[in-house]
Design a protein around this nucleic acid. Sequence first.
DNA 1: AATCGATATGCAAATATAAACCTATCGATA
DNA 2: TATCGATAGGTTTATATTTGCATATCGATT
Lengths: 128, 128
Amino acid sequence: MGKRGKADRRTVLLNYKLWLSSITGNGKIGDDTYNILNLIDQKGSLKAVADELKISYRKAWGHIDDAEKILGYDLTEKSRGGKEGGQSKLTLQGKKLLEAYNSLHKRFDETFEEAYTEFKSKISNNSK
Amino acid sequence: MGKRGKADRRTVLLNYKLWLSSITGNGKIGDDTYNILNLIDQKGSLKAVADELKISYRKAWGHIDDAEKILGYDLTEKSRGGKEGGQSKLTLQGKKLLEAYNSLHKRFDETFEEAYTEFKSKISNNSK
DNA sequence: AATCGATATGCAAATATAAACCTATCGATA
DNA sequence: TATCGATAGGTTTATATTTGCATATCGATT
């Protein structure tokens, strides 16, 4: 056996990112936004989501606000006031977006796995 | 016919990005780097590549330097001095990386096209 | 009408990323 | 051995992105 083993080789990682944008280009809808939408669906409040994710309400709100501006329609139905202070829930379109994104992402993940394996085998320096 | 046509709807774009990184995380090998590598192969000089791309030599050099640090081996063979000042050409491993990246990217592009089409059809608000 | 907790935003501060600047080094050729 | 053009890289400037601060609004309930 040689001096170096598998674990000794430098590990190179493949990464990819997926997002939606408007044609004008400001703001994007990426994993963070989808994550927030998903949690809104579970918790019914943006504040609760922000706490859960340990991010500021301002930040969470910004993601959703950006997303709705990009798409041009509401993903969430908001209400204010009352004993509970208010709440946020997904609109029908918000749910549709989440579902569509999930299958989109899944498809990319599959491609990623396959392509990465092939890529590494092509790259590996298997000369004697 | 209604008030709005296809062209009137807000256009939402899907985007993706692909890159390599080291486990330690500083620097990345993305499209820019691959583009530079490809041009080095054609032109035989990093300076010529920088001019072609209208970027600074410093920037082009930085991309290659980062990439070689991430991978832990040379992608280019450099020489200095002489009437021509010097030159850069791809190493065998550099060429292998380029090829591997091309098929990787192609595969992602295919997935992208298919998935995007499906995504849009799911998202489109085709209620009456 | 006073309260309370979540929604709603402008704006400033802090980071991170990228671009530009400048100076040094190398070495085949003349 | 003087030159010239490309490689090499530290340092600074500019720009973009992100994070956080502070304050206002809303309205069912009490």
